[in-house]
Computed example of a mutant assay.
Amino acid sequence: MSESSIGPGEFYQVVGVGPHSKPWPTDNHFDPQLLEHGDRRNVLDKYRYWKIESIVADLNTKRHELQIAIENWQHDLNIGSIVRTANAFNVAAVHIVGKRDWNKRGAMVTDRYLTVHHHATVDEFKAWCDKENLPIIGIDNLEVSKQLESADLPKRCVMLFGQEGSGMSDEAVAVCSVVLAISQYGSTRSMNASAAGAIAMYAWAMQHLNPINHPKN
């Protein structure tokens, strides 16, 4: 496969845009440094040359009611990928449950545009959710799991994901209102945690958003 057929993205340098032609726009949300030197960030075209805080402020006006939580006991690389997907769905918040330091490599700095909470224990996370009256929906392939595809997902909820390999801890399973599994049709018992996260978030979006008529930018 040639570079021209791959295009910008995960495996090819994102070109972005170069310096802005003068006269520069004067709106306060523009970053003079980006206007002068160019904007190579992986952001929507509408956010080109914008300050990070201005992008966050705009996203905050249209956050969705879904929140995402990930257990972090082993510094799992997949956490960053799930956070990146959470950014794509503009979730209300992300929760790191366990160790405070998490592997941000896969997030590709998208966590800068999200509200990220830390909870040292599952019990602490559960107490926070109870205070906010948010049901916890576990996503894992367990004996107690029900089918994601046929589930009615609450509009306001937190989806909780476990670690790659080990899955959700027993403590995490115990605090869930329900645990849902993604139907699989091959020989493998489970799929990659970040892939499961993307599928689960998309399932929620299909029930509560209108992706068919959603503009690209």
Rank of each mutant, 00 (worst) to 15 (best):
residue 1 M to R: 11
residue 1 M to C: 00
residue 3 E to T: 14
residue 3 E to I: 12
residue 3 E to R: 12
residue 8 P to K: 12
residue 9 G to T: 03
residue 12 Y to C: 15
residue 14 V to Y: 01
residue 17 V to G: 13
residue 17 V to I: 06
residue 17 V to D: 12
residue 17 V to F: 10
residue 20 H to D: 02
residue 25 P to K: 14
residue 26 T to Y: 07
residue 29 H to T: 05
residue 31 D to K: 04
residue 34 L to F: 03
residue 35 L to T: 08
residue 35 L to W: 08
residue 36 E to L: 04
residue 37 H to L: 11
residue 40 R to D: 13
residue 40 R to L: 13
residue 40 R to G: 13
residue 43 V to M: 06
residue 44 L to E: 10
residue 48 R to T: 09
residue 49 Y to Q: 13
residue 52 I to E: 14
residue 56 V to S: 00
residue 56 V to Y: 03
residue 58 D to Q: 04
residue 59 L to V: 00
residue 60 N to H: 10
residue 60 N to D: 14
residue 65 E to Y: 00
residue 69 A to M: 08
residue 70 I to Q: 07
residue 72 N to F: 02
residue 73 W to R: 13
residue 73 W to C: 11
residue 76 D to W: 02
residue 76 D to R: 00
residue 77 L to A: 15
residue 79 I to A: 11
residue 79 I to Q: 02
residue 80 G to F: 08
residue 80 G to W: 01
residue 84 R to F: 02
residue 86 A to Y: 03
residue 86 A to F: 05
residue 91 V to S: 01
residue 92 A to L: 15
residue 92 A to I: 02
residue 93 A to R: 03
residue 95 H to E: 08
residue 96 I to H: 00
residue 102 W to S: 13
residue 107 A to N: 09
residue 107 A to Q: 04
residue 107 A to E: 11
residue 108 M to V: 01
residue 110 T to H: 14
residue 114 L to G: 03
residue 116 V to P: 04
residue 119 H to L: 09
residue 123 D to N: 09
residue 124 E to G: 15
residue 124 E to C: 08
residue 129 C to D: 01
residue 134 L to T: 06
residue 135 P to K: 06
residue 141 N to H: 14
residue 142 L to G: 08
residue 142 L to R: 04
residue 142 L to N: 05
residue 143 E to R: 13
residue 149 E to K: 09
residue 155 K to R: 14
residue 157 C to L: 07
residue 161 F to A: 05
residue 162 G to M: 07
residue 166 S to E: 09
residue 166 S to L: 06
residue 167 G to Q: 04
residue 167 G to H: 04
residue 168 M to T: 10
residue 168 M to A: 05
residue 169 S to T: 09
residue 169 S to D: 10
residue 172 A to Y: 00
residue 172 A to H: 01
residue 174 A to I: 01
residue 174 A to G: 06
residue 174 A to V: 03
residue 176 C to I: 00
residue 177 S to F: 00
residue 178 V to T: 15
residue 182 I to K: 01
residue 186 G to K: 06
residue 189 R to K: 07
residue 193 A to M: 11
residue 195 A to P: 06
residue 202 Y to P: 02
residue 205 A to K: 09
residue 208 H to Y: 05
residue 211 P to K: 05
residue 213 N to R: 10
residue 215 P to Q: 08
residue 216 K to Y: 14
